[in-house]
């Protein structure tokens, strides 16, 4: 951490700092063995951090992303994706064809569909799987071989279906149910789930990029040419209601839809310290939920454990509120 803070200001979000920790500590095998590291200009923190990362590695490829949703920005994203496609083709010596792109779209859609199946099972009471385990599956989504991931998640789902039939849950029936919404929780971040589920509630969904926000939309498989398929990929990206977009009203609706669908009694808004986009949105989120009489707790934290005691008290008090 001290080494990371020699490179990045202390008030950088923990997600960014942690990715630098992976690099500096050489603890991430993917980072170390990759031929190309792709960074996207998501928020100001990441954008500037890549300038620093660029000095540490010689294979960083930075992709620009739009922050508004218009025809012009769609064209910009398409151009970025085309440029990226060309870069990958050059690196690998493989040309993207109609067949290969179609197969790839199907492969990733299958992965998303498996996660949809897992999510739907979490609607049951008693919840057949802990939020922590389900979060882990959503995190592994980003790392594992796609076909193997789909297969493993489907296997988990088969098991969960049996559990639901037998009414055995990870927690007893009637355990207070909570939806988490906000910043992505990437490996090794299990803090909020761990604290919440040891305080007597179960997390039944994540409105997050590591979770439903990121996986809920499939890429349309109607394209017949590479160009049409690239359009479909762009379209899918434009459906994501991430806080880096402005304005972003769909996210408010989606949180409420999820709270209803998963039968959550309350929502914890998870903000990483120094993450402007999500911390800013947490206030309208809380207001929208309050108008619907859905209790909301806004937490702002990082990966460290110094605030664990205080966070636990706040989460416990929130659970008492839901009982």
């Amino acid at each position: 951490m001290e080494k990371v803070e020699q490179l990045l200001p202390r008030n950088t979000c923990a997600l960014i700092k942690s990715s630098f920790g992976f690099k500096i500590g050489k603890v991430c095998p993917y980072l170390e063995s990759a031929d190309m590291i792709v960074g996207e200009n998501i928020c100001d923190g990441k954008k500037k951090a890549y300038e620093t990362l660029g000095a540490l590695v010689d294979n960083l490829y930075v992709m620009d992303l739009p922050q508004t949703k218009t025809d012009q920005t769609k064209a910009l994203l398409k151009a970025e994706y085309m440029k990226f496609k060309a870069a990958v083709e050059e690196l690998t010596g493989v040309t993207v064809t109609v067949e290969s792109l179609k197969a790839a779209i199907d492969l990733v859609n299958a992965k998303r569909a498996a996660i949809h199946r897992l999510s739907a099972l979490r609607k049951a009471d008693p919840a057949p799987i802990s939020g922590l385990d389900a979060l882990l599956a959503n995190q592994v989504f980003f790392y594992d071989n796609p076909a193997r991931f789909t297969e493993s998640v489907n296997k988990i789902c088969d098991e969960l279906e049996t559990r639901i039939q037998e009414k055995t849950g990870a927690f007893p029936a009637g355990t207070p149910r909570i939806l988490v919404s906000g910043c992505p929780q990437a490996v090794p971040n299990w803090k909020l789930h761990m604290i919440t589920e040891t305080a007597g509630a179960v997390i039944v969904g994540e409105e997050s990029c590591v979770g439903e926000r990121g996986t809920r939309n499939l890429t349309a498989d109607t394209g017949t040419t590479v160009d049409e398929m690239m359009d479909a990929i762009v379209d899918r990206y434009f459906q994501v209601d991430c806080a880096i977009f402005t304005p972003n009203p769909q996210r408010l609706d989606h949180i409420q839809e999820m709270a209803t669908a998963y039968n959550a009694q309350g929502v914890i808004h998870y903000g990483l310290q120094f993450c402007q986009p999500y911390l800013m949105e947490s206030i309208p989120v809380e207001k929208a939920l309050e108008e619907k009489n859905i209790p909301c707790l806004r937490v702002e934290t990082d990966y460290g454990m110094e605030d664990a005691g205080q966070l636990k008290t706040r989460v416990e008090a929130f659970i008492e509120q839901l009982r």
Partner: peptide, 22 residues
């Protein structure tokens, strides 16, 4: 060690609360 503001429902149940930082 800490401070908090709590809003209550009519029946005394907690409606909303804020706590100071760490």
């Amino acid at each position: 060690q800490d401070s908090k503001a709590i809003a209550l429902f009519e029946n005394g149940r907690v409606k909303k609360f804020e706590m100071n930082d760490r």
